[in-house]
């Protein structure tokens, strides 16, 4: 049967046809008795389904769901309880407090020399940062997978994904007159964070948690995030831009 007639029949059964479409269908059916017979039977079958009513879920269902959700919430935030315990410990043991302050100062000092490196030469296309932040290869030579506009209001930006040797690389560029936060969310079951490169002139802080990279307090961002594919990426990544008012842009970008 013609696709147009199938659509008209579906819509007639669902009560979605305009009057002119109904007349069009009626005219067709009147000149095609077999189609008319079929339509009547389909209508009857659909009407029969109205006798099947929705079933109330078991009374315990909501309780079970919320118990599972609360348990998951506890698992996601164990750090809060650990921090609470640490604070309690410091309050009760002043000596430990002083040791912690000294150790923190030592770490900050070491970090200063690693990050800032006052003897580093000027120039270079990317900043060398501690830990997992390393200079990256150019993405311009990588095959482009996807490109999405990240702009909103007075914010200009874009996010692009590229196929890299080990997985994908995601480039985020953004300029904003006010400080914003940018989140890049991936599925850690598919993509494992490898490294980030950031150009000189980019500002803000970078935080990494499981599957989420956050660029905080940013006015200028030009970063490339490299992921290793631990499974064939099926899910798109999400990129979001937040101002103080809330989320202003949320986009999906393909990982394959």
């Amino acid at each position: 049967m013609d696709e147009r007639i199938i659509e008209l029949i579906n819509k007639e059964i669902d009560g979605l046809n305009t009057p002119s479409s109904s007349r069009e269908l009626e005219a067709y059916l009147n000149s095609h008795p077999d189609a008319k017979k079929l339509f009547v039977e389909l209508q009857r079958a659909s009407d029969a389904l109205k006798h099947v009513e929705a079933v109330e879920p078991p009374s315990y269902l909501k309780t079970h769901i919320m118990n599972a959700v609360r348990a998951a919430s506890q698992e996601q935030n164990p750090r809060e309880s650990r921090i609470d315990k640490l604070i309690e410990l410091l309050k009760s043991r002043p000596a430990r407090r002083y040791s912690l302050v000294f150790a923190s100062g030592l770490c900050v000092g070491i970090l200063f020399f690693v990050v800032a490196n006052p003897w580093q030469k000027e120039g270079g296309g990317e900043s060398a940062l501690s830990g997992s932040l390393v200079a990256s290869n150019e993405v311009s030579s990588l095959p482009l997978l996807d490109a999405v506009d990240l702009g909103a209001e007075e914010i200009n930006g874009a996010v692009k994904s590229y196929k890299s040797e080990q997985g994908i690389a995601v480039e985020i560029t953004l300029t904003s007159p006010q400080e914003v936060n940018i989140e890049l969310i991936s599925d850690p079951a598919e993509l494992m964070f490898e490294k980030i490169s950031r150009s000189n002139g980019a500002d803000g802080e970078i935080n990494l948690t499981d599957g989420r990279i956050t660029f905080s307090n940013v006015r200028v961002c030009r970063s490339v995030v490299f992921y290793v594919a631990v499974a064939h990426p099926q899910r798109s990544l999400e990129a979001r831009v937040y101002t103080k008012a809330g989320i202003v842009r949320s986009v999906s970008i393909r990982a394959q």
Partner: peptide, 8 residues
């Protein structure tokens, strides 16, 4: 459409 035919 096909599902409705099958159901019928």
């Amino acid at each position: 459409y096909t599902a409705r035919q099958m159901l019928k």
